[in-house]
């Protein structure tokens, strides 16, 4: 690592990044994205929350209405010619020429890359196809590919060369559970190799396990960002008391008496955010008040709780 070198800067940094479409719709609203080097950054948000538009701006495909983008220390879009060869990207699904074979499509992408060596091309294409499990289907025309195979080919294209940064927009779209696991393994492998990976998804569960960092988008705004632990801590720790049905109301009164707020009966348990109250105190108070305590649980907040709280649970797209 060179002293004060590029590794000190985040792999991706945006400042006040904004996109307002001609329709007047603000797709991305002043977001300050920071993806540290070496991170696997889960870029989460419902469909239509502005993730893809953000990724397009990172890559210089869409010009921001306001704000700036830095990729690997170079400002975009001006630094594109220098920095983009080090960036592999999957943007809004794979796209290839339908009447060309998978291999011919990769050959074309590599041939138009001014910085790629034609000598090493066949070897790199083989390696990329192998890595995503498409070796056997390399000669097939793209239009005969299934959705999952297309997605894999998109990943192969992003991996044609060693990359320092990968921007993967919904890489698990269209994949079966097995394929999804493979993508997760691939992301982990890339990160282990030292690359920074930004993975977007509208499904937390698809990528939660591989992320070191998380950013949560909703309606064009970046609502939360940080390490997984940091984000999870913004959630609320809950105490859940199990008792006999006829004593639930009693328990609720005891908890309220302890100063807990938002006490509610949740199915067979009485639950409340713990706040600053010690869990021992809750146990003592409940037992001391003559309640038959059948069980007591402290539920730590999960990333999912935070995600759901910030983005809502419905199926509705953001807009």
């Amino acid at each position: 690592m060179t002293a004060g070198g590029p590794a000190a800067e985040p792999a991706v940094r945006t400042r006040g990044l904004t996109k307002r479409f001609r329709s007047g719709q603000v797709a991305v609203d002043h977001i300050d994205l920071v993806v540290p080097r070496g991170a696997v950054y889960g870029f989460l948000g419902p469909n239509g929350s502005g993730k893809t538009t953000t990724i397009r701006m990172l890559l210089g495909l869409v010009s921001p209405t306001a704000g700036s983008v830095e990729l690997l220390g170079s400002s975009m879009p001006g630094g594109g010619p220098v920095v983009l060869p080090r960036v592999g990207a999957l943007v809004e699904g794979p796209a290839f020429h339908p009447y060309l074979s998978a291999r011919a499509n990769l050959e074309r992408l590599d041939a138009v890359d001014a910085t790629a060596s034609p000598q090493s091309r066949p070897g790199r294409i083989d390696a990329a196809l192998e890595r995503v499990g498409l070796t056997a289907a390399a000669a097939k025309k793209y239009r005969q590919y299934s959705l999952g195979m297309k997605q894999r080919l998109g990943l192969a294209a992003a991996l044609l060369r060693p990359r320092d940064l990968l921007l993967l927009d919904e890489p698990t779209n269209g994949l079966d559970p097995q394929g999804t696991r493979e993508v997760r393994a691939l992301v982990r492998e890339l990160a282990d190799g030292g690359a920074t990976v930004l993975v977007s998804s509208h499904l937390l569960s698809e990528i939660e396990q591989v992320c070191s960092h998380v950013g949560i988008m909703s309606r064009g705004e970046l609502l939360a960002q940080g390490t997984r632990a940091e984000i999870a801590e913004t959630g609320t720790t809950e105490v859940r008391v199990m008792t006999r049905p006829d004593q639930r109301a009693h328990v609720a009164r005891v908890l309220t008496g302890l100063g807990l707020e938002d006490v509610r009966v949740d199915g067979e348990v009485v639950a409340a955010p713990l706040g600053g109250t010690a869990v021992e105190k809750v146990a003592q108070a409940v037992v001391g008040d003559g309640v038959d305590l059948l069980g007591l649980e402290v539920r730590r907040p999960t990333l999912e709780d935070v995600f759901v709280r910030l983005t809502g649970e419905g199926f509705d797209v953001d807009r």
């Binding site: 890559l59 210089g60 960036v87 992408l109």
Partner: peptide, 9 residues
């Protein structure tokens, strides 16, 4: 979009 992010100017 993939040609432009290769990048091809």
């Amino acid at each position: 979009r993939y040609l432009l992010v290769v990048p091809v100017p």
